[in-house]
């Protein structure tokens, strides 16, 4: 095989995939273009804006500065995996909708991941903890107040597994 290509096996949203990739392909581009999972958005493409955040083995990570080869053997969760396409929204998504935690929605898939990570780890986080959790994500529409409110409500409403 070409020394700039490798085969990766990984699980995304519970589905196993095997693909050959160019090793310099970012995980974000792989998710979007090789797997067609375009819910993961790309903003800055150098690890600043947080739009591309996914869950990588249960920790939030920026998929624009990870390479798809690094995800060999990994378990990835993207916004598409939060709930089934036909099902109701995930409680965190529902809370974002209710509290206007989004306007244009571009940054939202990225925000959902650290919110999920925080709420899995912690019940009843303080406002400071919520703001800290999402501090690596930029939103240019909401001014963050709705997002913080949404995460607070999701904390109360979501019955964690």
């Amino acid at each position: 095989m070409d020394r700039h290509r490798k085969t990766v096996h990984l699980t995304v949203n519970g589905v196993e995939y095997e693909r050959e990739v160019e090793v310099r392909k970012t995980l974000a581009d792989f998710l979007r273009y090789d797997l067609g999972l375009r819910g993961t958005h790309l903003g800055c493409e150098h690890g600043v804006c947080g739009a591309c955040t996914v869950m990588f083995n249960d920790s939030s990570a920026r998929s624009c500065i990870l390479y798809a080869v690094q995800a060999d053997g990994a378990d990835i969760l993207t916004v598409e995996g939060l709930t089934s396409p036909e099902g109701p929204l995930h409680p965190i998504q529902e809370a974002f909708r209710k509290h206007h935690g989004l306007q244009c929605g571009f940054c939202t898939p990225g925000f959902l991941m650290p919110a999920l990570e925080l709420l899995v780890e912690k019940h009843g986080p303080t406002e400071k903890e919520i703001r800290n959790a999402i501090s690596g994500n930029l939103c240019r529409c909401t001014g963050y107040a709705g997002i913080v409110e949404a995460i607070r409500e999701a904390d109360a409403m979501w019955e964690r597994p």
């Binding site: 700039h4 310099r24 392909k25 624009c64």
Partner: peptide
């Protein structure tokens, strides 16, 4: 592709 080509070892 964002980065220049590289060879990858893990």
């Amino acid at each position: 592709m964002k980065p220049a080509p590289f060879e990858y070892f893990a």
